[in-house]
């Protein structure tokens, strides 16, 4: 008997209700997409957690590296002018 199955790892995304985005719920193993959906239903939606499931092969996801966090995300740190509180509007003007 071969010890290793060749079931791929899938990432599961669940939409909890219409109007909200699909959100990563976790991962699982399945031989194909159809089984991945069925497994996701059993593993991640036993208590009405969702109304829609996406499954994506883990291998298909490209992720940024934590080593690149600085060049990728630090430039946003000093751009306070992208936030509404940067601008001074007198109270008399009302909510803006």
């Amino acid at each position: 008997m071969t010890q290793k199955d060749n079931w791929k790892i899938w990432e599961v995304f669940i939409r909890s209700k219409n109007g909200l985005s699909h959100k990563h719920a976790g991962s699982l193993h399945a031989p194909d997409a159809e089984m991945a959906i069925k497994n996701a239903r059993d593993v991640y939606t036993r208590r009405n957690e969702g109304i829609s499931i996406w499954v994506v092969e883990s291998e298909a996801i490209t992720a940024s590296s934590p080593d690149d966090n600085d060049p990728l995300f630090a430039p946003a740190d000093d751009k306070v002018y992208r936030h509404p509180t940067f601008y001074e509007i007198p109270d008399e003007v009302g909510h803006m």
């Binding site: 008997m1 199955d5 060749n6 079931w7 031989p31 194909d32 089984m35």
Partner: peptide, 16 residues
């Protein structure tokens, strides 16, 4: 459960 896992694999391969 081995035959179930094998059958699922065979089906997945055939579909692919």
């Amino acid at each position: 459960g081995e035959w179930v896992r094998e059958a699922a694999n065979a089906y997945a391969n055939k579909q692919a």
